[in-house]
Nucleic acid binder design. Structure first.
Lengths: 186, 186
DNA sequence: GAAAAAAATTAACAAATGATAAAAAATGAA
DNA sequence: TTCATTTTTTATCATTTGTTAATTTTTTTC
């Protein structure tokens, strides 16, 4: 998905504002397995995914995957982006990726100069917020098996592209539990 | 907490922009038990809490509380605010409240006219997003007992002001489980 | 302050999920 | 292909959380 479409998909922008954003974007490619972004560091960039798949995880005893990003989605260390503080997430590429890179510093300048871009940034955060809130509520309502079925329905392609250990972690269960759930559904 | 302080606390605003916001705010009072905002309706206002305590819940078989709001916080039906669609949450006042009311329609006008207010709205969404993301991760990492201890640490006053049934629901467990956890901690 | 109602706790058993280990299947490298 | 490695499944037992019902405690109302 190319940058123009990605930007508009977040929130429609006047041509001039969109160009201002696009002028600050550089394209990079990176291969499967690469760690794009490390936890506990202030990340100076955000990325838009042109092609490929990534996951965000937090490290404790084990790794807990809490987000998958695919074509058209935005990779952000929220803490870095919002508060200029070290983030908790590590981003790993699950496939070879083509990314658009945008310096947070430049984006902030644009936020202060252009009301359309400021509202575009607002819309972005608001939409992400709704997605996150819905996931939180889903977690509170549904058991593991229901959450798995929901994921299958909403993002069936993930099951083709991501190994089950990551899916299990995303669902908040162990891989062994996920295997059991899948066996029961047969 | 008065409106000027609430607005600045979300994100520092130039005096003129703050006044523009304040001019659109009206003060209301409402009493404990009142349902401020009903699920499945487009809510035309947002509210800032001057005084009091509220909860947001979703109804299924049971009620699932997923948010508490107290002095200084903002009451929003996210779906209404962001997408002009019926929201999933009901807001109940847990104490007598004094609220500031702001029409979403007016706020949207201000977002388009004033870059400072647009960025203020962006910051608001971003901060809420971080809070929600952290809760999601906490839910993925911690068991019920750990989440209870975390809540006790971060928001001890809630335990004084809210009945345990709502706390249990917020933690994603039954009230009986919460009682058991509390008994074990003694 | 007594009675009624609501909230919180306790107990016993059921169901869901976790942990560990071993086996089977799939994937990748030489 | 073949061997080694990684991923997934299966099985067993432990732990956590849920369900239901009864009891105690607290709050509200008259």
């Amino acid at each position: 998905m190319d940058i123009s479409k990605i930007l508009d998909h977040i929130h429609q922008l006047p041509e001039q504002s969109k160009l201002a954003l696009q002028n600050n974007v550089t394209e990079i490619a990176s291969s499967k397995g690469h760690i794009l972004l490390k936890a506990n560091k202030v990340e100076p960039n955000i990325y838009f995914i042109k092609k490929g798949l990534v996951r965000a995880y937090v490290e404790r005893d084990n790794e807990v995957t809490f987000w998958f990003g695919k074509e058209g989605e935005t990779i952000i260390s929220m803490k870095s982006y919002v508060e200029d503080q070290p983030g908790y997430e590590t981003i790993e590429l699950l496939e070879d990726c083509e990314l658009y890179e945008l310096k947070t510093e430049n984006l902030r300048k644009l936020f202060n100069e252009d009301v359309h871009i400021a509202n575009w940034g607002r819309k972005f955060a608001e939409k992400e917020l709704i997605k996150t809130e819905e996931r939180l509520i889903s977690k509170q309502f549904k058991n593991a098996s229901e959450r798995y079925l929901e994921l299958m329905k909403d993002h069936p392609e993930l099951l083709q592209r991501v190994q089950l250990g990551h899916i299990a972690s995303y669902l908040g269960i162990t891989q062994v539990s996920l295997s059991r759930i899948r066996a029961e559904l047969k």
